[in-house]
């Protein structure tokens, strides 16, 4: 694991990717910091961070696009998977390298509240800022895990980047998407039906098995209709709560407000573990199919 971690980290800094990632993140956050905190004397650095989460949409795909896809294209994965290392170690080595690159600008951000302190910021608000930075790091780490997983699915870096961007985009706007749908049970029924249809299409595209896709779609739809007929109240507002599962960035609000939110931490860590696990499974599946 250590060997892969070191190689991966080195690769990020022999190519421009690592530098671009760090520089761009520092640049965007730096502008916001200068404008809000320094020019307008606004004391909370964490709120600046919450305003800049959109950069992950671009930066995460840049960082993760090559991580697995390139190995596959260059066939270097043959070296990794025939060496006496477990696949989990390969994936973790790579994921930790991603986290390390991401942690470098975080360390720089840790200096900003100190800078604000020289203008008389209170100790309590310092702690809140650091909690905010911690939340920001968790959010980024979850996004990186998603990117890692998507990079495993394809051989093409471009495809990997575009898919990661789209998935992150959906996650970011899932809350707003959900608010379009009225909270009534009827509207939920229609919205879920559309989603089931989409899911069936995706299953078909991935497995090329029409029976599986149609079967899964029908089964889900039946369950949905049964719930609707038995107790339609259950579906009221269900779309919003369903979408909130994917609302990765929304979970950060508490951290930004200075609350060390245990459910938030659990949410992010679960997301990271899930996607690292899925990455390992995706590799295993390809080996055995």
């Amino acid at each position: 694991m250590l060997a892969i971690y070191k190689r991966e980290l080195k690769a990020y800094f022999t190519s421009p990717v690592g530098y671009i990632f760090i520089a761009f993140l520092l640049f965007v956050v730096g502008i916001f910091f200068t404008f809000y905190n320094l020019r307008q004397s606004y004391p909370w650095f964490a709120s600046v961070l919450s305003g800049t989460t959109f950069v992950f949409l671009i930066l995460v795909p840049i960082l993760t696009m090559r991580i697995m896809a390139e190995e596959r294209r260059q066939k270097t994965d043959q070296l990794l998977f025939t060496a006496p290392v477990r696949i989990v170690d390969v994936v973790l080595g790579k994921y930790f390298a991603l986290l390390t690159v991401f942690a470098i600008p975080m360390l720089v951000f840790c200096l900003y509240p100190l800078l604000l302190k020289t203008f008389g910021k209170s100790d309590a608000s310092m702690a809140m800022d650091y909690i905010g930075i911690f939340g920001y790091f968790l959010l980024g780490a979850a996004n990186l895990a998603i990117g890692l997983f998507i990079s495993t699915m394809t051989e093409s870096q471009v495809l990997s980047a575009v898919l990661t961007f789209l998935v992150l985009l959906i996650c970011y706007y899932s809350a707003s998407l959900a608010s379009i749908v009225p909270a009534s049970a009827n509207a939920s029924l229609v919205a879920f039906t559309v989603m089931i249809l989409l899911a069936a299409v995706i299953i078909y595209l991935m497995t090329k098995n029409i029976f599986l896709a149609a079967g899964a779609g029908c089964a889900l739809e039946v369950v949905l209709v049964v719930i609707f007929l038995i107790n339609s109240k259950l579906l009221e507002g269900a779309v919003a709560s369903f979408f909130s599962i994917f609302d990765v960035s929304g979970r950060m609000e508490n951290f930004i407000n200075g609350i060390l939110d245990v459910t938030g931490i659990t949410y992010y860590i679960s997301a990271i573990v899930l996607f690292v696990f899925l990455t390992v499974q995706a590799i295993q599946k390809r080996r055995w199919s």
Binding site: A3, K6, A11, Q74, Q78, L79, T82, P84
Partner: peptide, 26 residues
């Protein structure tokens, strides 16, 4: 194992590469 297409990292030198493989092979 040497696969059909040698699994080489293009952005490394042979020495770095062999060092990496040695570490990988524990």
């Amino acid at each position: 194992y040497l696969p059909e297409q040698p699994p080489l990292y293009m952005d490394m030198t042979p020495y770095e590469y062999l060092k990496f493989v040695a570490e990988l092979k524990k």
